[in-house]
Write a protein that binds this DNA or RNA. Structure first.
Lengths: 345, 345
DNA sequence: ATGAAAGCGCTAACAG
DNA sequence: CTGTTAGCGCTTTCAT
């Protein structure tokens, strides 16, 4: 393997000269396009490998006006939900020749706008982005880019192009219904205080609607800032139960703080689900690790990632179609697990 | 905001014509390069905004031979360690105009090679990749690319260019030393069975060295496959304690399964750290959520990300320098927390 | 099955 | 401070 570092990156021309085959044919071999004789192919591949040639996709992309990149824009990587979505996207894209490029917005609309601008400047084959709430400028950029766009996670609202997600309002409503059906009446909520976490907000809206429909009030709320952790779950549970000791159910905006709440109850001798019931959201793996499995609702994140990627891959196949996707709206149905912390109705 | 979708993506020429300024000057304005009069700048920016122009970085990159991308290649996103490293990279890169592009290898050397090939074909300004173990082909590619490379997480071995990490052998040794100093003598290990997780392997090697130095044997081991979870931690702890009931200490290869072990002990009335001591690795947030804080060792992942990104950013500034970095080796010092599960020596 | 010519959209280098 | 020219390294298109 001759790999002395070259002064200048290798080009197709170098491979062409080394193999005695025209640049064009070298290009064909390296992309498996068009008919090339086995002998020529062999010569080219050998030359490319011995030289250590790596194609230049910048040049290729400019010439062909197509780039095998899919922009994925999400709010955060520390919220465990998103790595899972990425897993789904990644798995589905694996055999398509498309590659995800990840941008993180930290739940900031301004950052989202910047990230999108940056990503669009690479002319990706598709854009997958979390949520339906975007700045007017961001929507305009996406619309006028002519690139297929899939908005994921949330179906409560209007989209730019295609939507894949679940209804968080409905999820909240459904959980409220089950809680009331199980006989709980003094209900509290523990959740993040993030105006930009629209999905958490919509779940709470749905939850209150569901309670209201049964004539049950939401008695107390406790909000926290920043990321979710077991520790915060414990602290907030302690706090809300101090303020409102009569609560017989706590609905958490996600499983991580819900699990923290469960820990609080376990270590303070509070009977679950007898004295108090608990439920979270997301269907995260952590739920399975505790002695009592937290009631929760699966957020279908792997499936959402897969579906979004599938749609982009489809459109990339059918390239040449100008403009964006078909404007489909795919609403997945999350399943509710009662676990051990919500007594059977 | 006029944003009728154009048939053809907008080019600099469109902005040039709309503003009556030469393409070159438009380019200068849009990149903040060179001196442009305020009046001209104004005209250009207005035209660009009303048209909804988004620069084409493919073309720009080809022309300028520089691309503001940093390739980041990691084994997994579901191992919580890596999102944290990414956080550090992201934070440090934020003000440099460089953008991370993430590739995931699933701990497969073959996949790593493919991902690297793909990333190098974009001619990034730098490469950050996890670990020191890579296929010969991968090393050759990186070396001959002339791109600065930073290998992260691990300093036990030889690198391609620059290294930023901690010594996992030393971390294991140090933990062994403290455990023995605290008086524990019948020690077991619970860890992942992943031949490709070299850092976990090195920690165990170091751990055994540390025990051996004190004349203490490692009495039992329990391995698991796949990702780490609380549930696995519980199950494996139960299993190893069934096989070897006399153990008085368990060393876990990470905090997640360590926390699972702690849960097992808590729910089975096994006194910690009196009857048995426990320790994990990584210094993850989850450790703080439990009633007893697991002994652990911080893996400096945020710091590692920051430092790696800083090095790449530095080199990107000093562009023109042919060849790669300075071949530095930066070894960070992890701090050990005794928590509540390792009795004080 | 292979090659030659033209050009993708932008920026470096130079001129004024 | 602004404009002109000549590519960047590949692929498209057309010819053979």
């Amino acid at each position: 393997m001759t790999t002395l570092r070259p002064r200048r990156p290798l080009t197709l021309r170098d491979v062409s000269e080394a193999s005695g085959v025209s640049e064009m044919t070298v290009s064909r071999v390296l992309r498996n396009r068009g008919d090339v004789s086995a002998a020529t192919r062999e010569k080219v591949l050998t030359a490319a490998k011995t030289l250590g040639y790596v194609p230049n996709k910048i040049a290729g992309g400019l010439a062909s006006q197509r780039v095998n990149l899919v922009a994925v824009v999400i709010p955060s990587l520390s919220n465990l939900v998103f790595p899972d979505v990425l897993g789904g996207i990644s798995a589905e894209l694996d055999d398509t020749g498309l590659q995800p490029v990840i941008g993180v917005t930290n739940y900031s609309p301004a950052r989202e706008e910047m990230v999108l601008y940056d990503m669009l400047s690479w002319r990706p084959s598709g854009v997958i982005l979390a949520g339906l709430e975007h700045s007017a400028a961001a929507r305009a950029m996406l619309t006028s880019s002519g690139i297929p766009v899939v908005e994921i996670m949330d179906t409560d609202g209007d989209g730019i192009d295609t939507i894949v997600g679940i209804s968080h309002k409905r999820a909240g409503r459904e959980m409220a219904r089950r809680i009331v059906a199980a006989g709980y009446r003094r209900i509290g909520f523990v959740g993040t205080h993030m105006p930009e976490d629209h999905r958490a907000r919509k779940r709470l809206v749905g939850f209150e609607e569901g309670l209201a429909a049964a004539g049950v009030p939401l008695e107390a709320r406790e909000y926290y800032q920043g990321g979710s952790s077991l520790l915060k779950g414990r602290e907030l549970t302690e706090r809300i139960l101090t303020r409102a000791p009569n609560l017989d159910f706590l609905y958490y905006s996600n499983d991580m703080i819900g699990a923290g709440g469960l820990l609080h109850c376990m270590t303070h001798g509070i009977a679950v689900p007898g004295r108090i019931g608990l439920a979270g959201f997301n269907g995260m793996e952590i739920v399975d690790g505790f002695p009592l499995r937290l009631a929760t609702m699966d957020s279908c994140r792997l499936e959402i990632g897969r579906e979004a990627a599938r749609i982009i891959a489809e459109h990339a196949d059918a390239a040449g179609t100008p403009g964006a996707g078909a404007g489909e709206r795919i609403e997945l149905q999350p399943t509710l697990s009662l676990g051990d912390t919500l007594r059977r109705g």
